[in-house]
Design a protein around this nucleic acid. Sequence first.
RNA 1: GGCGCUAUCGUCUAGGGGUCCAGGACAGGUGGUUCUCAGCCAUCAGACCGGGGUUCGAAUCCCCGUAGCGCUACCA
Length: 494
Amino acid sequence: MPDRVRVRFAPSPTGYLHVGGARTALYNYLYAKATGGTFVLRIEDTDAVRSTDESVLAILRSMRWLGLHWDEGPEAGGEVGPYFQSQRRELYRRHADALAAIGRAYPCYCTAAELEARREAQLKRGEPPRYDGRCRGLDPAGRAAQAAEGRAAALRFALPGPGETAWDDIVRGRVAFQNEVLDDFVIMRSDGLPTYNFACVVDDHAMAITDVIRGDDHISNTPRQILMYQAFGWTPPRFAHVSMILGADGTRLSKRHGATSVEAFGDLGFIPEAMVNFLVLLGWSFDGTQELFTLAELERVFSLERVNPNPAVFNMEKLEWMNGQHLKRLPEEERARRVREFLAARGADVARHADGFWVALVHAIGERLKTLADVETYGAFALHERLTVDPVAWTELLEKHDIASRLVTLADRLEADAAFSLESLEQATRGLAKELGIKAGDLMMPARIALTGRRVAPGLFEVMALLGRARTAERLRDAARRWREESPKAHATP
RNA sequence: GGCGCUAUCGUCUAGGGGUCCAGGACAGGUGGUUCUCAGCCAUCAGACCGGGGUUCGAAUCCCCGUAGCGCUACCA
């Protein structure tokens, strides 16, 4: 019986949670769920300058929004905490000392400037830029002399001799590095803080992590980490390196590709269900055919074996489609709630409409709603007292004949419609068109523009019902009045 | 430059030697339905990076090339 799986997501809080990180977190979470394991969240804030509390909060917020709940970590606690690296310094210090005691780490007194100069010289000579190991040979007297000069020492890992360091990557198969391409890297900085590679190994071991699932930008760190596990006499975890998420231009997704933070997608009107579904498919597939999944389903069917190694381009159109799919699967009451919350978050006064209004609005918009933000484009006519009129649609209307009289007549008929139901409205409108001897569309499009200010809108009768009798008649008459004032056809005889 | 990873339709992918004249999805084209749009239905177009092997047989295995990306810090 293999050990229970323990995985971790280990973001460094230097900004928001971006989609790449979110997918890594998602894979870790799903793998834990699918195997009945534990999902740990660890904050890698060893870089005191770049880490901020605000980022920590933003990351936690995004993870909760996505529904990725961690079993151990900040605010959740756990047996092997603390879960902030900044609170684990003693542990790193102790392990660094242990490595030094067995000769696998040594103090290095070289300054940043010296290192930089040597690196440049190596590059100029066409050599790979690597630490030359000069402090490794220092005897106690030599070290004392350096220290006496007031130089602060960093601690470097002493690489073993030549050889090969390899592992069987869950998504890539065997990956191997020659030890010669590595150099004695720093594990403790001169300010006493650990570097990423070191803290990562110490913590993954201390937290009993069984599987490290992370981005493939860490592949070249892996041999260094494995060498450290070996130096400590520990068994390394399994590794799974997931590929990067790319922008449309094929380069690593970054700010210049637009929205990249999970939060930004929420602001754009994407819902977490779609975000999770879209992200999981960027590098994983179920059977190549089924694409729509809920988080709960994914928790059952996800497997690391089906993660593919090639980098994926982030495809906004597909995300939009998928968002629409998940939106339409939501019960209308729930969809209405999300729409209202979305608008409220943007400062809209959502309280002036009753609950029933929101459900009716969402019902009328129907599957046109691809993102929550679409409520503005399709529902503005009902959301705001003042109608915004699309100039293109209005100009087109001005070129048509007979518009004012039709709209006024329609207003009269609708006002007289006692039921004011979808059926009676449709009957009245179509009936009028027939009486006038025109196509229904020639009455309905002008009415649509009069009522919504746009050519594209929900069904006309839903629009009328939503607006109510008074506002429907008022908008039809207003449009008629304006049309008479502005249209060159107003006085022409057809 | 060095090291590493990757390579199937525009994009996400299925495929793990024959059942593939390569399947699904998004996007796109066309036709239909509808009060516009969306949707829905039908339909079309669209790919195995190149070259060598291995094999009776390769999208699938191996090698070389090419391209893209990543790493090459006392960042993570």
